[in-house]
């Protein structure tokens, strides 16, 4: 089952990249002109955000009554 999903995702990626390569073309602009850049950016960016916030969470996450116990007023 996992293999089917992986194959589907790769097929989808292939279709989107091919469409972009054919219909948009590679301009001479910045790095996002590379076909498929935003697909990669989507998944890598997502992981980066999760890692940053989970790392931050270790530091700033508290129990819900934190302010009640530690002098709100």
């Amino acid at each position: 089952m996992k293999f089917v999903w992986a194959a589907l995702i790769i097929a989808l990626l292939g279709i989107l990249v091919a469409l972009e390569a054919v219909l948009v073309g590679t301009g001479d602009g910045f790095v996002w002109q590379v076909p498929g850049f935003f697909a990669l950016f989507g998944i890598v960016g997502f992981l980066v955000l999760v890692v940053i916030s989970k790392g931050l969470g270790r530091w700033i996450r508290r129990y819900e009554d934190y302010y009640d116990r530690n002098g709100d007023e």
């Binding site: 972009e20 850049f37 935003f38 998944i43 508290r62 129990y63 302010y67």
Partner: peptide, 29 residues
């Protein structure tokens, strides 16, 4: 097409990690 790529593949990322992303009963400073 750029928007579609961005949304679809970050969505796939969520599906893969959905087990660890639920709300926890904590607050954030």
């Amino acid at each position: 097409i750029a928007t579609t790529q961005l949304l679809v593949f970050s969505g796939i990322g969520f599906w893969l990690l959905r087990g660890i992303l639920g709300g926890k009963d904590t607050i954030t400073l």
